[in-house]
Amino acid sequence: MVVIDGPDPPLLTAAGLGKWYGGRVGCRNVDVVVWPGEVVGVVGESGSGKTTLLRCLAGMLAPGVGVVHYRTGEGTVVDVHALPEPRRRRLMRTEWGVVHQNPRDGLRMAVSAGANLGERLLAEGARHYGAVRSRALDWMADVELDTGRIDDRPHAFSGGMQQRLQIGRVLVNRPRLVFMDEPTGGLDVSVQARLLDLLRRLVAELDLAVVLVTHDLGVVRLLADRLLVMRGGEVVESGLTDQVLDDPQHGYTQMLVASVLPV
């Protein structure tokens, strides 16, 4: 593992992570370090263990072996999977966020956009309707949604708008670390481009650390600072994004880079 001297210690450190589903491997021998304000991309083909790794890192799935350490806002380092459940849940809705591929998994479809944006604030203890609503309005504008549609339900929104709403809902209380699972999956290319612009701006403005899982090399090229390439549950190559994509060392990475269709 590379140790970098810097003012801030790492935010998230995972060592020797492994997860088996019966006899099948989800992921194994994975070491990940996420530094503050850094976007780490995880790429690989379907079934390569990307989502399993993300779920283990985000505390949603208990790994078979290995530990995940997180440095909290107060500066203490905690073992994510050994935390008592109330604390882990509080962490997940205050300092962390998860953006799902399908916005329907992350949104509450039965309530308005404003209620979706306000939920994390209400869960944190906000009890002033006017304040929650004005924060929701700010975030509607921040994720480039028409503020006049704050009382519409997500059903009335297009796929791209739903995804932007989901991102707003996660970022509303300024988490430090966000896990994204294929945030641009299932969107057409022009909507994808707009979403990527938005993500790039928000990540920079909020100084977010992000773990970004995708199979789209274009997405990681734009967003990620560092890259992990996974295959068969293992990390086969890692490094700076441009370095890995421009000079792939592992045979699989070379194949992956070569598979991108030129326009």
Partner: peptide, 9 residues
């Protein structure tokens, strides 16, 4: 917290 979402709505 989710209960307040209903009141908000």
């Amino acid at each position: 917290g989710g209960m307040y979402v209903k009141l908000y709505e």
